[in-house]
Write a protein that binds this DNA or RNA. Structure first.
Lengths: 225, 225
DNA sequence: CGGGACTTTGACACCTCTCAACTCTCGTGG
DNA sequence: CCACGAGAGTTGAGAGGTGTCAAAGTCCCG
């Protein structure tokens, strides 16, 4: 899950459905991960791809000097664990209870085994590339306000529940996860959230739950194209 | 071409060779692009993948408000043009004379046509994902000095020619391309280059040609892990 | 030689980070 | 059941890195 525009997510949804459909043909391997447990760590041999069914995963990397980056959040429908060479180059842990479908790495090694699934995975990888390109713009060319507005909008579109006319959803990650995802300091995330609340753009009643009160204004702030 | 660590590039080189090998089995389609001409534009139907043989491509996107992002530079060995859905979501033009191998989009659509090539493209896409993840760190968590040091080191490793003990290479892109690639202002790029020159870390005799005088110090400045 | 685009340099402003203190939340144990 | 403590979140003050704006310099090509 990156901060991208809604179009990409419609793609993602249909792809997720298609992937699930393929799984029904053959025995499904499902794995459950408890909060805080790792699906894989940097350096682990990449043996599987994971399709998130429920819950939220966190993909992170650490620079030598300790600076951390949250590369992506894995929401239902996302494919996590594309390897580079033989190994994973990031840590992946669960920030909620998570359930994933497991696709053996062999699917990637030989297209003939399951050509349709193979093709779907390739499409998913290319969608990922496009989404990451969008994320580049977010990281490099947007102000903190724009970054957070985009982030909230994307989450709203993906997992928001319409309640009394407003989109409402959980923020299962902590503030510093959001900060490290958007390449911003946690303090700044806090400040912008406060600012949004004072301007009645969002409401945060419980600390991990957000209501989008004024989606129009968020869209303006996000300056999405 | 992203700003990543050297390990990724060794992968890229071997993959490029493998791809070329596959091409020899079947008739090769080659296309030449003159400086300034476009290989494809945002919104174009994505019909082909391109493998750069020689020259340098530039992949760009523009935000609604005019802010521009250089997503990547396409150097020999790079695969450019992974589609998202049916269309390209970025512009791609040539900043030098360019020659590319053309792989029909159909290769992606049906793994059975050319399973080995298909698999190679998938691997290339996944390498791309990993390289982009590294680039996230560069964009979001590095100072301008670190960004430029990383950029010069990567280019040196990829296209540097050893001349009298130092790596030397062309910078075919203009300063503002570098700026938009690293998400920095052109003025700042200029300032850092000047700083590097004054500290005898690099030499810029012709404006588009760089000599790495002190690679060790560049490595320290880049703070790569 | 001249014009235009690109690059460099400087001054200044401001956004965001850092550091620090304070508050809130929630789980634990007395 | 309440008090406490630890961790997370919020708020504030100050510093510093970069961007913006402006002007001068450089290079290229007609």
């Amino acid at each position: 899950m990156y901060v991208t525009n809604p179009i990409d997510f419609r793609h993602a949804d249909t792809a997720a459905l298609s992937l699930a459909k393929h799984q029904q043909i053959q025995p499904q391997k499902v794995r459950d991960i408890a909060v805080g447990n790792f699906l894989f760590r940097e350096g682990d041999k990449a043996q599987n791809l994971f399709e998130v069914q429920s819950g939220v995963l966190r993909l992170t990397r650490v620079l030598a000097n300790g600076r951390r980056q949250v590369i992506a959040f894995g929401y239902p429908g996302d494919i996590i664990g594309f390897p580079d060479g033989d190994n994973h180059h990031a840590d992946c842990d669960a920030i909620t209870e998570v359930s994933v479908l497991v696709h053996g790495h062999a699917v990637l090694d030989d297209a003939r085994l399951q050509p349709e699934l193979h093709k779907k995975l390739l499409k998913a990888a290319m969608r990922e590339i496009s989404a990451m390109q969008d994320h580049f713009m977010t990281l490099g060319r947007k102000s903190v306000t724009e970054k957070l507005a985009s982030f909230l909008l994307v989450l709203g579109d993906r997992v928001g529940e319409p309640l009394s006319g407003n989109l409402e959803f959980d923020l299962p990650m902590c503030r510093s996860d959001i900060a490290d995802f958007l390449c911003v300091s946690p303090e700044t995330v806090s400040r912008i959230f406060t600012q949004f609340r004072k301007r009645k753009i969002i409401a945060i009643n419980q600390i991990k739950r957000v209501v989008l009160l004024d989606r129009e204004q968020l869209l303006e702030l996000a300056e999405m194209d």
